[in-house]
């Protein structure tokens, strides 16, 4: 028996090695865009568009970061970056809260409850994603105008509380992988649907709920079109809209400042992702229970 287990062990080591090599090579490929962004954010303006492009700035300009944050403050009388950040945080927090709450419940209904018209309505739900946005943009604008929401944050977060087709579909697919027997057992124990949902389904779906939270966070944080259409006043702008201010209509974009600002804008998302993906690992621990 001994030699077998040793060869087994060696096999395992080989496998780990290969995995590491594959991971390192691929992650280099994937990290190129971000590395390029960071490198540009530290260059003097004259080197940003040089060709052939250079990776390492001739001298590292950390001052691009404070410059980017203060960009435009002279004209506006306040530091727009900080105001944009505050606005973005307000919208994002509300959206994530609303989305997790509403989608988890709605998807439960579509995945595990039976009601007349459910499958038809689910089909309609999927279909709403197939109509391209520009086509519904004008009537949607008219609707929010009718509600008196133009110029406020409401069009950007209130709909999150009413679930979204993408997240419903996603969660439904996950909920359906959970064996029905679990629900039935709970039902026999006298649990209400709400109890089954909160005590059985939610704990088992943490990775999926995390994905919904993460994607809503990203979507809301990076949303450009929504704020562009619905926000009017400069001090209600969001970060992604603010990034446009660095871009000049007629060239002369300060790419180094633009990238520095972009790095600052995506930093929170990177951190959130890094923390969120830990939940996946915890998921492994719980899945052993099933």
């Amino acid at each position: 028996m001994k030699p077998v287990s040793q060869s087994h062990k060696r096999n395992r080591q080989m496998q780990t090695m290969i995995t590491h090599i594959a991971l390192v090579t691929l992650s280099v490929l994937f990290v190129v865009p971000l590395a390029w962004m960071i490198s540009t954010s530290l260059k003097p303006i004259t080197e940003t568009l040089s060709n052939p492009p250079r990776w390492i700035p001739s001298h590292v300009l950390w001052s691009n970061y404070p410059d980017a944050v203060k960009y435009g403050s002279k004209e506006l009388g306040y530091i727009p970056f900080l105001v944009y950040a505050r606005n973005t945080i307000i919208i994002t927090v509300l959206s994530v809260g609303g989305a997790v709450l509403s989608n988890s419940i709605v998807a439960y209904s579509f995945a595990r409850l039976k009601w007349p018209g459910r499958d038809l309505f689910f089909g309609i739900t999927l279909a709403t994603m197939m109509v391209p946005f520009p086509v519904v943009m004008v009537p949607t604008f008219a609707l929010f105008k009718y509600l008196g929401w133009i110029g406020t944050f409401k069009p950007l977060w209130v709909p999150a509380f009413f679930a979204s087709a993408f997240s419903i579909f996603l969660l439904r697919q996950f909920y359906r992988t959970i064996p029905m027997e679990l629900s039935e057992a709970a039902k026999i124990d006298g649990c209400s649907e709400l109890r089954i949902f909160t005590d059985v389904i939610v704990p088992l779906s943490r990775p999926a709920l995390m994905v919904v939270a993460l994607f809503t966070f990203m979507g809301s944080w990076n949303d450009f079109l929504g704020p562009m259409i619905y926000l009017v006043d400069q001090n209600t702008f969001t970060l992604s809209l603010g990034l446009q201010a660095y871009q000049s209509q007629h060239g002369g974009t300060p790419f180094n400042l633009l990238m520095a600002a972009s790095c600052l804008v995506i930093l929170p998302v990177v951190i959130v992702f890094f923390l969120a993906q830990k939940v996946f690992i915890q998921g492994i621990a719980t899945s052993g229970l099933k």
């Binding site: 691929l26 992650s27 994937f30 990290v31 865009p33 971000l34 962004m37 990203m218 990076n222 992604s240 990034l243 972009s262 804008v265 995506i266 998302v269 990177v270 992702f273 890094f274 993906q277």
Partner: peptide, 10 residues
């Protein structure tokens, strides 16, 4: 995180 990063770059 590395593999996810490109989806975050503007």
């Amino acid at each position: 995180t590395m593999f996810f990063l490109p989806t975050l770059v503007p």
